[in-house]
Computed example of a mutant assay.
Amino acid sequence: MTTSTAPALTAAERMAAAVALLDAGASGSAHPRATAFLLRRALEGKLDAYLSRQRPALGRCRMQTKVVWLAHHLNPELAGRVAAVWSSLSGACH
């Protein structure tokens, strides 16, 4: 018996799925938690891709550690926005 798994979605595919869920919400069938999860995973995917080029050793670290690294190695204002968005999305996922 062969087990197959679906390929992981790209960040762009996650964003498109989130938009589709938001559009569906206009008709009364909103899925805010699923939308937040898709957006958070898209952000994490992009951050992981960036860090794999800049600091591959951080690949196994928790997202909070990655965000702290950003604050010290990137524009602090941008790093702060990334942290705020990720934190808000994480809260919405739970």
Rank of each mutant, 00 (worst) to 15 (best):
M1G: 10
M1D: 06
M1L: 08
M1A: 13
T3Y: 14
S4L: 14
T5N: 13
T5M: 15
A6M: 15
A6D: 00
P7W: 02
P7L: 01
A8H: 05
A8M: 12
L9M: 09
L9A: 04
T10P: 02
T10C: 07
A11Y: 03
A11F: 03
A11V: 05
A12K: 00
A12C: 01
E13A: 08
E13S: 14
R14Y: 07
R14A: 01
R14I: 14
M15G: 02
M15P: 02
A16L: 11
A17Y: 12
A18M: 12
V19S: 06
A20K: 07
L21W: 05
L22Q: 15
A24Q: 12
A24Y: 02
A24P: 02
G25H: 07
A26H: 07
A26G: 12
S27W: 00
G28C: 04
A30T: 14
H31F: 03
H31K: 10
P32S: 06
A34E: 09
A34N: 00
T35H: 09
T35D: 00
A36V: 10
F37G: 05
L39A: 05
L39F: 02
R40Y: 10
R40T: 05
R40E: 08
R41I: 06
R41T: 13
R41Y: 01
A42C: 01
A42D: 00
A42E: 00
E44H: 06
E44Y: 08
E44M: 05
G45V: 06
G45I: 00
K46M: 14
L47F: 03
L47T: 08
D48G: 12
D48C: 09
A49N: 10
A49F: 07
Y50D: 07
L51N: 05
L51G: 01
L51H: 06
L51F: 04
R53G: 04
Q54L: 10
Q54Y: 09
R55N: 08
R55H: 13
R55K: 15
R55E: 08
P56K: 15
A57K: 12
A57P: 00
A57N: 06
L58G: 06
G59N: 07
R60I: 10
R60P: 01
C61N: 13
R62C: 02
R62H: 11
R62I: 03
R62Q: 08
R62T: 10
M63G: 02
M63C: 04
Q64H: 15
Q64W: 11
T65Y: 04
T65N: 11
T65C: 05
K66R: 07
K66H: 03
V68N: 08
W69D: 06
W69A: 14
L70H: 04
L70C: 13
L70T: 08
A71W: 07
L74W: 00
L74D: 09
N75H: 06
L78D: 11
L78H: 03
L78I: 10
A79Y: 04
G80N: 06
R81Q: 13
R81V: 08
V82L: 11
A83T: 14
A83E: 14
A84W: 07
A84Y: 02
A84M: 06
W86R: 00
W86Q: 08
S87R: 13
S87G: 15
S88R: 15
S88G: 01
L89R: 03
S90E: 11
S90M: 11
G91P: 05
G91I: 14
G91T: 15
A92S: 13
A92F: 15
A92W: 09
A92G: 11
C93T: 13
C93D: 06
C93H: 09
C93M: 15
H94I: 11
H94P: 11
H94R: 14
H94K: 13
